[in-house]
């Protein structure tokens, strides 16, 4: 039933004439649920949104952090709320892309139980190695991995960097030794202490280390080179079709009014064009691409199917 509603809602969105404009959509304060504790990138993006919803359009918004179980606690909570636009979730790959494959007993359906409203942007991870190792190209990396082996750090089992590591294993036909950490900061610390040979992490958070020559980037998992780091080649141009992005978007419970969805989408799109917002997101390495609600829904669905084999390969459940 929920599925049917979502599909018909999507159909209505397509059929609806484009009358919506950016603006306020609810008289009540809107709650933006964040899947992480306060202070992380996700939380900060939600706070930027909340701030501009109010200052630009008079739409009151508060941030509600509900961390736990890889974002599934927050997603489950939002799925059960009324679809009146007062509860939204700042979603990402953890509850929507990874969890559906990772957990068999997921209490919600990532597509049927949600109205996916607006895409915010994505940041991309890259492969880094020790500068002292002398490795500078992907072919040298492959040779090293096939020879003495390579240990790499990720920000956790089932995290996006672990999945990227698995994708590299499969695509390059190598077997790297995975060492999971809790977040990328401790992994980088061990890397700098010389105990790790490589790691995968968001390229934007490694700018300082790259300029200081403390770490050597090899390849980026984006479709195209990054504007901020034009010297790093992409896996794709090196002949390995690996694209793994850490996306963020705004979603609500299933069955939201298509008019309202359109208004929220336009409001988010307008805020994303503001100079200070672009600057702030750039600090987190998040680059925005405009998407309609339908495009975003297709995008989320697409990530679930394309990532499924990688998540299974990462064998995150045992």
């Amino acid at each position: 039933m929920k599925h049917f509603l979502a599909i018909s809602a999507a159909a209505l969105v397509i059929a609806a004439p484009a009358v919506a404009e950016p603006g306020k959509w609810s008289d009540e304060p809107v709650r933006i649920v964040v899947t992480f504790p306060p202070g992380g990138t996700s939380d900060l993006i939600a706070r930027v949104l909340a701030q501009y919803f109010e200052s630009e359009y008079g739409q009151k918004a508060v941030v509600d952090n509900r961390p736990g179980a890889g974002g599934t606690v927050a997603a489950d909570f939002v799925a059960e709320q009324a679809p009146d636009g007062t509860t939204l979730i700042l979603g990402n790959n953890a509850p929507f892309t990874i969890a559906p494959t990772q957990f068999e007993d997921l209490p919600y359906d990532p597509m049927g139980d949600f109205t996916h409203i607006a895409y915010l942007g994505a940041s991309t991870p890259a492969l880094f190695v020790q500068p002292a190792s002398g490795i500078t190209t992907i072919d040298e990396y492959i040779a090293q991995a096939k020879g003495d082996g390579i240990t790499y750090g990720s920000s956790g089992v089932g995290s996006i960097t672990h999945i990227l590591g698995k994708a590299v294993d499969i695509e390059l036909g190598i077997e790297q030794i995975h060492v999971p950490y809790q977040g990328s900061a401790p992994a980088i610390q061990d890397f700098r202490a010389g105990v790790l040979e490589a790691y995968y992490d968001m390229v934007a958070l490694n700018g300082d280390l790259i300029t200081e020559g403390e770490t050597q980037p090899i390849a980026l998992a984006a479709p195209e080179r990054s504007a901020a780091f034009p010297e790093i080649p992409t896996f794709r141009e090196l002949g390995h079709d690996i694209v793994i992005e850490n996306w963020t978007g705004l979603s609500g419970p299933s069955g939201m009014d298509p008019e309202m969805v359109k208004t929220i989408n336009e409001t988010v799109a307008a805020i994303m064009q503001l100079e200070p917002v672009i600057e702030r997101l750039a600090q987190f390495g998040v680059e925005h691409t405009p998407m309609s609600a339908e495009e975003f829904t297709t995008f989320v669905e697409g990530t679930i199917t394309t990532w499924e084999p990688l998540i299974k390969a990462a064998n995150v459940n045992g």
Partner: peptide
């Protein structure tokens, strides 16, 4: 278990995963 991602003694309760 942060090293393998397997659940330990959580009795299947999502809130116990962390």
């Amino acid at each position: 278990d942060i090293t393998t991602g397997a659940e330990r003694f959580t009795m299947g309760i999502p809130e116990m995963r962390d």
